[in-house]
Design a binder for these strands. Sequence first.
DNA 1: CGATGAAACCGAAACGTTTCGGTAGGGGGA
DNA 2: TCCCCCTACCGAAACGTTTCGGTTTCATCG
Lengths: 341, 341
Amino acid sequence: MPKRISIVDVAREAGVAISSVSAALNGGPGVSEATRARVRETADRMGWVPSVRGRSLSSKRTRALGLVVQRQAGVLEADPFFAGFIGGVESVLEPAGYALLLQIGRTPEAGADRLRRLGLSGAVDGVFLTDVSVDDPRFPLLDHLHLPAVAVNAPGSMWVSSVTQDHRSGLRDLMEQLISIGHRDIAHVAGTAGLVHSEERASVWRSVLESHGLPLGPVIRGDFTTEAGVRAADTLLGGPRVPTAVVCANDLMAIGFLSRAKALGVRVPDDVSVTGFDGVLLGAHVHPPLTTVMTSPVALGTRAAEVLLASIDGGPRVDETIAPAAVVDRASVAPPRGRAA
Amino acid sequence: MPKRISIVDVAREAGVAISSVSAALNGGPGVSEATRARVRETADRMGWVPSVRGRSLSSKRTRALGLVVQRQAGVLEADPFFAGFIGGVESVLEPAGYALLLQIGRTPEAGADRLRRLGLSGAVDGVFLTDVSVDDPRFPLLDHLHLPAVAVNAPGSMWVSSVTQDHRSGLRDLMEQLISIGHRDIAHVAGTAGLVHSEERASVWRSVLESHGLPLGPVIRGDFTTEAGVRAADTLLGGPRVPTAVVCANDLMAIGFLSRAKALGVRVPDDVSVTGFDGVLLGAHVHPPLTTVMTSPVALGTRAAEVLLASIDGGPRVDETIAPAAVVDRASVAPPRGRAA
DNA sequence: CGATGAAACCGAAACGTTTCGGTAGGGGGA
DNA sequence: TCCCCCTACCGAAACGTTTCGGTTTCATCG
């Protein structure tokens, strides 16, 4: 077992004090360029990489950020958000020398508990908050822990910074478009109750209909899974009065709806128009290709990571916004029957 | 700034030595039950959680496991494997008190480098190896670092433990099925060159055809993306001799193929049968629903985590196997034209 | 030429835990 | 009664870094 080489070995080899090695490698002051170069060369030659254990204990910085995913296992698989988000996060963490600590809390309570331990144990320097609910208990918790955090798609939390993509305008555009081509009977397949993005989408749907003096079509409560979309199709298409358009709170439910509609012999978009939300890759490859609102999880991750790192370095609390989600027109939308454009 | 409470505070409060607090909480010997209970109660009351920083420095254990994902950003999004795998891993790690450190190496070289730093810096106690290539350079690296590891779906690496799901038998069954209903002209849309699971699937396709004395249909080299499936459809369906069945190395490519086939007016399964591999959720909701081989990323993650934890605790090198991937019959397969069952 | 100050470098404390050798105290055997 | 041993507990070293106060060196200026 070859003893792990440490900073003392490098110091001895380079003929300087331990503190000088530290200063040299971290760009600190009080080190001549000649010494710095020599130390750097020695460290490289010996293949020394600072121990994150020693470093984190001493510097009170772990150089790791936490992400506690609060989702049921099933949803995670086809989830369009996290893969992209994590990719974006990593792209800024890597050059900054940070790592991402991932945990999964199957329930909100479990998630909050893991978050608490994460903070108390000092395992991370900051955390990302996703799937924020209204009055999320994690906010006061983080405040209590003095743990830097950034909330994703939950602006103005008053406690922590946030990075948000406007989802309202895109969905509003989509609704207006539907109405402009003649739809009057527009149903909504909603997401999990209590989540801010579920409520937000439902509220846009409602407000646009109201602003046009149109009746509120039926609302089916879903949970963002494909299965929920299937069930919604059963309910909506089997009902007495079939809407001419169905606005789903995400793509997965829309795809489930599409699938079930086809099985029931209901043609999309001829008999009913269907829209999604998110812009998953596969949405372009189902039939008909899904008209949706394209979100940007990667950009969200990138910006969130930047904000969080700045926040750790003592930056002020900020509320950032990235380019809004925009409508992507594909083929699952058409004028209602008997009113062809 | 309320000073972080540490083990000394607990020791003072409980009226015992620091070492006794440690022993009491970690179940060590030399502590009476009465004292243990009192210490535990005191710690709980004060809300003390051991600092992972101090602990990891002292114990030479980080209680974190590393996963370096080597994939281009685009593939990650729709990827059916990682979400499930990570879910499975976490389900084991959480009760064990371990965390998962996630990193993304966009290229194999970058991935190997991140792995190297991860090991040298002592940031993790062990790592998961996925997307293993033949002669993967990470094996000798890990050996050099003395870092426990478990290879996923890459059995018999000689260097490290492995957990594997048999993918061959399922695909073989699928091929036999195709042949038994009359297909003689079977093409293959392969995955990224060099990856063991790409080569494995190609080799099953080849060997089954050979064992039946059938000609090897064309092979299109893909890269596991939906787009590659689209391109494969263009090539295969536009060629002079259209195969009667196309076996894709994964579902995403199969879905891309399906999508493009429909656009070209080629009917599936009437004109051509298409099969996938993986068993992504959405495969059941495309049209026609995709016949595929169902893999189990969650089970793989669960078992891999168990093996890795055991390996860290000094367990022997093992090669585990979980239940093989099995065919899921859906509607994208039918007898070739003019030979209806 | 001596005082002054800055730059370069050093030594040691501190971070919070685990671990290990050591000590007091009490019960049991001879 | 004496000795031994075991249990319960304590104190201090060790882990590998950063940080901070202190010391040397040397050029500059009066």
